[in-house]
Amino acid sequence: MSEHHITPLKTYLAVAGTLFFLTVVTVWVSYFDFGSFNIVIAMGVATLKASIVALFFMHLLWDDKKNLTMFVMSLMFLGIFITVTLLDTGFRGGVNSEVESPINNRAAFYDSLPLTDTHGHPVDEHSADHHGEGEDHH
């Protein structure tokens, strides 16, 4: 075991410092509105942080590359999973307007929230009309 790569302490501290810095950056940036770029920026910073964690803390940088390959492959399959699912859910109703509906028809969906009084409490029998609204709003 003695021949394993031992990462210098300085590297670990620098990595942690970078992670703290990027955390502060992503929170700070979230107070500005860049429209649809909010998500891109937040996910970009998160991916940068995640890569640093994987490469340095999880030692993938110095490991046999088969481990990195396996990890990257899991992310590729996650990408396929997301893309193919969005190809369905993103274009429902694009071909046939009447097939646009929630995945689970019995799930509670509101066209608008039930009425509330001035204290924010539901006015009446809101638990009774929780269910069954989803089906008839199309």
Partner: peptide, 12 residues
Amino acid sequence: HLVDLIWIYLFP
């Protein structure tokens, strides 16, 4: 570290 890595995405 995986637990940390997942939280890195959940937080934002």
